[in-house]
């Protein structure tokens, strides 16, 4: 689980010191990959603490990784997304969504921000049917009706339905 500075009981810089030495080795060998990771993180509104922690997680995963090319990038981004998921104790997509919507990461909607956003976009459906009725009556029938109405209006006039709410 990710913790920011306020959650640490000791000086966080001290705790991270050992990690930094290891990172220096990784950075030297895998600078382009980490640059890409930084490029990605720059697009998310992470706090400095979150960014550093995620970077540390990625570096830790890359340490000793014997890979090159796309496999290395894939490993780095898998680590990055895993770290993002850890921020919310759940899904990386929920974490990214929280960051995109400027919500406190993992602290709203029980960490299920995606489901919450879906409900905001479209409330639960309550189906009802709406079927059209044909309006086709021949002109002959319509004329006959007109003649009937002219001859004896009462014979053909129907009373109107009582509408809901009408006395």
């Amino acid at each position: 689980m990710f913790k920011d500075e306020s959650s640490y009981s000791v000086n966080p810089a001290g705790e991270l010191l050992a990690g930094w030495a290891a990172e220096a080795m990784v950075v030297a060998n895998k600078a382009p990959v980490l640059a890409r990771v930084e490029q990605y993180m720059a697009r998310l509104s992470l706090t400095d603490a979150q960014r550093l922690w995620i970077r540390g997680q990625v570096v830790a995963q890359l340490r000793g990784a014997d890979m090159e090319g796309e496999a290395l990038y894939a490993q780095a981004f898998a680590s990055l997304h895993m770290a993002l998921a850890t921020l919310t104790d759940g899904d990386e997509l929920d974490a990214r969504l929280d960051l995109s919507l400027n919500l406190p990461v993992g602290e709203t909607h029980d960490g299920k921000s995606c489901r919450w956003l879906q409900r905001q976009m479209a409330p639960a459906t309550v189906r009802s049917s709406m079927a059209s009725r044909p309006l086709n009556r021949s002109w002959g029938a319509a004329l006959l009706r007109l003649v009937q109405s002219l001859l004896d209006r009462r014979a053909i006039s129907a009373n109107r339905r009582v509408l809901p709410g009408e006395a």
Binding site: D94, L99, S100, L101
Partner: peptide, 12 residues
């Protein structure tokens, strides 16, 4: 590409 836009669209 953009992780924010991707998150909003994908979540929906």
């Amino acid at each position: 590409v953009d992780p924010r836009f991707n998150a909003i669209h994908t979540a929906l």
